[in-house]
Design a protein around this nucleic acid. Structure first.
Lengths: 207, 207, 207, 207
DNA sequence: CATGAATGAGTCTTCATTCAT
DNA sequence: AATGAATGAAGACTCATTCAT
């Protein structure tokens, strides 16, 4: 009632949140499709069904919008992953590995444009404003911990363990790069199984 | 009309070639460092030690310069790789695989800025003018042939063979992504050996 | 139709007046501090403790607010001055001059941000919508009448009388310009005395 | 001849200088006419007979152009004034004063749009980027020195000397403010004489 | 041919104004 | 009548491309 009151109407507040989310979602689509550098604010506005001005009512500038988007999506991915990992601390390593890859593939598969964005983020990290560690590097850090689990359980060979995180991430990178332009590659549970099997047992025919 | 108008002085011709190469080289550095979208013509000119105008005397426009650069580098990489593969058609698969990965890692390691460019090329293929198949997709095609060799030799398991090319490329992607920001990861022969071993035998401890 | 529809509740009316005045006051501060061109409606709203919308409920647009503000302040200044002048028609000229300068200095000193606004108003008069004669020009007209009084009384020399109004205003301009950035210059009665003395007797040492 | 040679063609260099000057001149006209805040880069470009891009080839941004303009004009005015003052160190004070005011009036009269700019500069100094001391404050400092000369020569009364600089500048301000909208006021030598006379002897009729 | 200043279309960003609640 | 999010026209700035010297 008091004009100076800061208690905004819950309705207005909810609408604002909805618009905020819609903008982030549109930004994800446009940044993903056009590239981090080429995406235009007007495109994003149109995709979100709002005017340019509204973009700037929610984010200080293009940079801030991009940062907010990447931060949000990174947090969503990593939080989900950390939850999954936490829940299966005591399971055998192959199951852990399957769930880890499966969750990641599932999530990125759901947010299609995201993967391209994360690759670009990684590529350009170092240029421009210094944001937090790129999502893919964080993801690699999770692979690292997983590998350590595997070593502790005696499920992984020690010999090349130093490169395992990079190679594991490589599997994910390779699969998504393929999926990006090939419709044959389904991001299915079978694919995840193949990744796990190949990582653990190798592609070589047994003697 | 003048007979000299066609047969250019060999000296001038050689100079022209040198400038051409210098521009491509500068473009590689700048595109690699700044990104395909952010690199500026002026930057490239400065890096090449020429003026912007000269860039346009050698290439129709920015697009043409970028295309020429990517085409040149792609051809260099693939030609070299095809030669190597040709030379060892009859060797055992593990040796073939080692040479394939080794050659690729070596070449890309030599042309550092190139890898980032190829990733971006792959990301943006589909956008803008339709260039030839991106280098990384060609590279994947080579992996495919290699895998077929391995299958024919009975050196690879048939079960997940459909994904092997993507996974093999994934190993290379993963290693370079890591090398991009980590000084610990040396692109050494040992690394190549680890990649081959892990790909063929897996990371899992033998029962 | 409803009898109350015309005769508004006196309370609401009083509130409305209060808000109106608060907005004008905030506008004075913000326009004065930021400049006539740079002041933002949002700033003014915040300074007045209302929302932008409310600004537009009281004034048609930015221009109207600014005009109302300038008109109000001009009227206040000129009315007060005219009263003072009226009251001392019969006093000797030096006293008249002192009261005139004193009143002006006092009033402008009280409304600090106002002087900057008036200077800008004068500068930009001619641009944009044609407002009434700028306050400073009205003030100069008052100087003119005063000078005429002085001439009639034989208190002023005729020789340069045509420039006296401009020079008198110049004294005021000079003093406020100085006061704007110098804390040493107090807008005191002594200062007014110095202005009167210098204007009438000159700064030169008597022979 | 050497492409890396930094010795630009003198012709090109001269053209560049000409364009540079033309831009400054156009900027002076447009900033003066529209105001420091309202002047548009496109207007300036058009007034200078060049494109917007060219403006940015010569000045980093709007701010830099404005700063360069003010710095240039301030330097021109002050240098000229300092020269004049230097040349007449030994003359009697009234002559010095006449030359000082005369030179200032003459110069500002020549560069009509400049005065409005200087007033705005003074008004806004304190806001935005901190430039050097505003030209009018520098000019006041020159008045200060002149007054000190007058005191030393015994040509000025000590009593109100502290305000003399502000009052002297006030005369100039008043005259230009008047001249800005009144065609009757000629910036003539007679006007300067009237200013000197009034400042030294006052406007009051001698007893 | 090389040069580099000029060009102007394309983007980002701001802010007065509107209007549904 | 007050609110403040949405709007979009306007203006600053960038950079690929052209062309006179």
């Amino acid at each position: 009632m008091n004009p100076r009151s800061k208690s905004k109407s819950p309705l207005k507040e909810r609408i604002r949140e909805a618009v905020h989310g819609e903008i982030l979602s549109a930004a994800e689509r446009v940044f993903g499709a056009s590239g981090l550098g080429a995406a235009k604010m007007e495109e994003i506005a149109t995709a979100a069904g709002v005017s340019v001005g509204t973009l700037y009512n929610h984010f200080a500038d293009r940079e801030a919008l991009l940062t907010a988007l990447l931060d949000t999506r990174r947090a969503e991915l990593l939080d989900m992953l950390d939850d999954v990992v936490e829940q299966m601390k005591s399971e055998p390593f192959p199951a852990q590995l399957g769930r880890f890859i499966g969750t990641t593939v599932e999530h990125l598969g759901q947010h299609r444009p995201l993967f391209a964005m994360l690759i670009e983020e990684e590529l350009h990290s170092g240029r421009g404003r210094l944001r937090g560690k790129p999502a893919l590097r964080e993801l690699t850090a999770r692979c690292q911990r997983l590998v350590e689990q595997g070593l502790k359980q005696g499920a992984l060979r020690k010999q090349d363990a130093a490169v395992y995180p990079a190679l594991l991430m490589g599997f994910i990178r390779g699969v998504f790069a393929q999926a990006m332009h090939e419709d044959t590659l389904r991001l299915s549970p079978e694919l995840v199984q193949a990744m796990v099997r190949t990582f653990l047992e190798g592609a070589g025919a047994r003697a």
